[in-house]
Simulated assay, not measured.
Amino acid sequence: MKLKDVIMLLLLAALWGGSFLFMRIGAPVLGPLVLIELRVLLAGITLVIFALASRHRIHIVHKWWQYLILGASNAALPFTLISFAELRLDAGSAAILNATTPMFTALVAWLWVKDPFTVKKLSGVILGVIGVGILVGWGGSGHGLHLWLPASFSLIAAIFYGIAGVFSSRHFKGEKPMDMAIGQQLGASLILLPFSLAALPHELPSRVVMFSVVGLAVLCTAVAYLFYFALIQSVGPVKTLTVTFLVPVFGVLWGGLFLDEQITVRLIIGLLIILSSVALVANINSKRKGTTSSVAPEN
């Protein structure tokens, strides 16, 4: 990759890693539903403005119901689940758990479209399970007991990302990435709107929370998608998938720097094992393109 591509990859990872920081700040104050509604709505509006400014003709109405499904499976549901998880889970752990997305994508692809499930992928899945167990804690008491429920929310979110990846590969062939991003965000906004209206907070949030919402929507979602598309066009989807290894690193880093989260030995070991599982499952060196080339694998 050229230097500009490496810089863009690092910026994308930093932005997606930052999303866990902003959700950790905003979810306890606004509530997960309102926070994510604001995220997808503002991101969708930002992308529409960019598309109009760049004279891109938005073409999404012809697949309105597919965009609703994509919006639900790749944004509304996983974003909300991660926000619920971060009511009790720290940003770094949530970012690491989200790195299991390629593992679940491989399982979904195997079950849904009979994508070959090799020994390497199976080894990656087993390694991923071990990594999650170390990160959260195996025991029925102490460290792990109160973390397994929020951790399960993060893992279910990763499953939805996997479903969205396979769904998009079957229903959005030939569609422009910008249209997919806009359709996904607006579709997610429509789905979450009635639920978020019923969960509005009783008082205005602080300036820090408001900045977190803007950062989450505009930087970590809209701008991050633009970087993602640029990388897809420049270096291809396989090399772009290496962002999967960097996002949890930035998630842990931002949590430690800005939220004083502890970076423990358990956290580092869990991170390294889960990233090793991602390497086995994603098979980065493979020439075969993954099922998620048109949908962001991490956010």
Results as ranks from 00 to 15, higher is better:
Gln233Trp: 04
Pro201Thr: 01
Leu200Ile: 10
Phe20Met: 08
Gly17Asn: 08
Val214Pro: 01
Gly44Cys: 05
Phe195Asp: 12
Ala72Met: 15
Trp148Ile: 13
Leu216Pro: 11
Val281His: 14
Gln262Tyr: 09
Trp254Leu: 03
Ala151Glu: 00
Asn74Arg: 01
Val252Cys: 06
Asp260Ser: 14
Leu10Pro: 01
Leu186Lys: 02
Ala164Arg: 06
Gly124Tyr: 15
Phe195Ser: 12
Thr244Phe: 04
Gly142Asn: 11
Ala106Met: 07
Lys63Ile: 06
Ala181Ile: 01
Leu193Pro: 12
Val238Pro: 03
Val223Tyr: 14
Phe227Pro: 00
Leu231Thr: 04
His143Ala: 14
Val129Cys: 12
Pro102Ser: 11
Ile159Gly: 06
Val214Glu: 05
Leu271Thr: 00
Thr244Glu: 07
Val249Asn: 02
Phe211Met: 15
Leu70Lys: 10
Gly137Glu: 08
Ser206Gly: 15
Tyr225Gln: 09
Leu107Pro: 10
Leu190Thr: 07
Phe84Ser: 03
Ile163Asp: 04
Val209Lys: 13
Ser93His: 04
Ala222Ile: 07
Glu261Ser: 04
Val209Thr: 14
Ala217Arg: 06
Lys4Asn: 06
Ile25Arg: 01
Leu122Lys: 13
Phe117Thr: 02
Ala51Arg: 01
Leu127Gly: 12
Pro78Tyr: 00
Val265Ser: 12
Val252Lys: 03
Ile60His: 05
Ser19Arg: 13
Val6His: 05
Leu241Ala: 15
Glu298Met: 15
Ile25Phe: 04
Asp5Phe: 03
Leu107Phe: 10
Trp64Asp: 06
Gly140Glu: 11
Trp138Asp: 01
Gly215Glu: 08
Ser83Asp: 07
Ala157Pro: 15
Val265Pro: 10
Leu11Gly: 08
Val129Leu: 15
Val243Arg: 01
Asn299Val: 10
Leu241Lys: 10
Lys2Gly: 09
Asn98Ser: 13
Ile96Trp: 09
Ile96Ala: 07
Phe117Pro: 14
Leu15Val: 05
Ser19Ala: 13
Tyr225Ser: 05
Pro177Cys: 01
Ala75Val: 02
Ala181Thr: 02
Gln233Met: 06
Arg266Phe: 13
Val119Ala: 14
Ala72Ser: 13
His143Asn: 15
Ile232Trp: 00
Lys289Asp: 10
Leu204Thr: 07
Leu149Pro: 07
Gly215Tyr: 09
Lys63Phe: 12
Pro194Gly: 14
Gly137Lys: 11
Ala296Ser: 11
Leu52Met: 10
Val238His: 02
Gly174Trp: 06
His62Glu: 10
Ile130Gly: 08
Leu9Trp: 00
Val278Gly: 11
Ser234Gln: 00
Ala72Cys: 11
Asp5Ala: 12
Gly270Ala: 04
Leu186Cys: 02
Phe250Ala: 04
Gly137Thr: 07
Val247His: 06
Val129Gly: 13
Gln185Arg: 00
Ile69Gly: 12
Val119Phe: 15
Leu11Cys: 13
Ala53Tyr: 08
Lys2Glu: 15
Leu275Lys: 06
Leu122Arg: 09
Leu107Lys: 06
Gly31Leu: 08
Lys239Asn: 04
Trp148Ser: 12
Leu12Pro: 00
Ser294Phe: 12
Leu259Ala: 02
Tyr67Lys: 03
Ile156Tyr: 02
Tyr228Cys: 02
Leu10Asp: 00
Ile58Tyr: 07
Val6Pro: 00
Val6Glu: 03
Ile134Asn: 07
Gly236Asn: 00
Gly31Val: 08
Asn283Tyr: 10
Ser169Ile: 02
Val243Asn: 15
Val252Asn: 03
Val213His: 07
